[in-house]
């Protein structure tokens, strides 16, 4: 298996702002790859570098082993699903989907037929004659997908593709995207700031922070074995235990992460914490706790009974769930 996208020491600076700083990256063919990070972390700039909308200040970018930093976007076999879909308002849905074919001068009948097939693939058969403005957000999203896939790109780039959808639709689309990617075998690179989306969909995740990659790995790696304090905090909002507390509890050195769902409420024998806030989430309850002067998040099931804000509570966890962060 050869890499679909390779970054070798790639940088992109905007004046003095280092949007992307000396990034090395290899995305495998057929992979569903997520770029995760807060806004301004450089993940979208990386996507735009692959698409060709930005040119690197330094370094080398390869797609399927071809250096492409001097190739304009319209000659790269890479397509993009834009955050707000960027459907052309003056064209019908079918014309939007067939746009790439029209540009390649495919004859009209054939390209409209292919567009209809692509629309059926995203379960929008028969919608070709409508205008984009007549569709719902989820439908537009799928039109954008069909439009990007009709040219059979080597890599499909998705920029926050589900960001504008409501929760229920988003979960549906996550499943659909995964199935589509598996069925087509095309490399998907998608950018998101939503860690649960990245964790549930991606084969591998790159976590971005301040223009650099903080960690690359499988969702399990990223979630359970964060390599930096930033990753631990950003992915799943882990509790980070200060070094003093870690030494006191386990005798090990360094800081450690502890997932909120690893914390249990016990009747006695645990650590005493003060409840500072609570919110009922339906299937569970989130508690904000004060433990030895440090703030803690706990996600506990509803069986622990009732608790008042300001009241003390006993909590505990398995030592194995405490993940020591190296190098800290």
């Amino acid at each position: 298996m050869k890499p679909a996208v390779t970054f070798i020491n790639v940088s992109r600076y905007f004046g003095s702002v280092k949007a992307v700083n000396e990034v090395d990256l290899a995305i495998q063919e057929g992979e569903f790859f997520a770029m995760l990070g807060p806004s301004g972390s450089g993940k979208t700039t990386c996507l735009r570098l692959i698409a060709g909308f930005e040119r690197p200040t330094g370094g080398e970018i390869k797609i399927l082993d071809e250096p492409i930093q001097d190739i304009p976007p319209y000659r790269r076999n890479v397509n993009t699903v834009f955050q707000d879909y960027a459907l052309f308002p003056h064209l019908s849905v079918a014309e939007n989907v067939a746009y790439a074919l029209m540009i390649r001068k495919v004859d009209k009948k054939q390209r409209l037929q292919q567009a209809e097939e692509a629309l059926e693939m995203v379960r929008l058969g028969g919608y070709g004659d409508r205008r984009p403005s007549q569709l719902s957000g989820g439908q537009r999203q799928r039109v954008a997908l069909a439009r990007a896939l009709i040219g059979k790109p080597a890599v499909l780039l998705l920029d926050e593709p589900l960001g504008a959808l409501d929760l229920k639709l988003r979960e549906e689309m996550q499943e659909e995207l995964k199935q589509l990617q598996r069925a087509l075998g095309i490399t998907f690179v998608f950018v998101t700031h939503d860690q649960s989306e990245a964790l549930s969909m991606a084969d591998r995740i790159a976590v971005f922070n301040e223009g650099e990659i903080a960690q690359i790995g499988t969702p399990q790696d990223i979630y359970h074995r964060p390599e930096t304090e930033f990753v631990a905090n950003f992915v799943g909002s882990s509790n980070v235990l200060p070094a003093a507390l870690v030494r006191q509890m386990s005798g090990r050195t360094g800081i450690a992460s502890l997932r909120p769902e690893s914390i249990r409420v016990v009747a006695e024998g645990g650590h005493t914490a003060i409840v500072t806030a609570k919110s009922f989430l339906g299937s569970a309850t989130r508690l904000s706790l004060d433990l030895y002067g440090a703030g803690f998040n706990a996600l506990v099931d509803n069986s622990f009974g009732s608790v008042e804000i300001g009241a003390p509570i006993q909590i505990d966890w398995d030592d194995a769930d405490m993940h020591l962060i190296e190098g800290a």
Binding site: A51, G52, F53, P72, P73, Y74, R75, V78, N79, T80, F82, Q83, D84, A86, F88, P89, H90, Y99, A100, M102, I103, R104, R147, A148, G151
Partner: peptide, 24 residues
Amino acid sequence: NFLEASSDLGATPWQTFRNVLLPL
């Protein structure tokens, strides 16, 4: 991003001008 989308789908700047920018 309409212009980027057009370019992304393989349109040269002139084709983008004719098919997207001018109509809009």
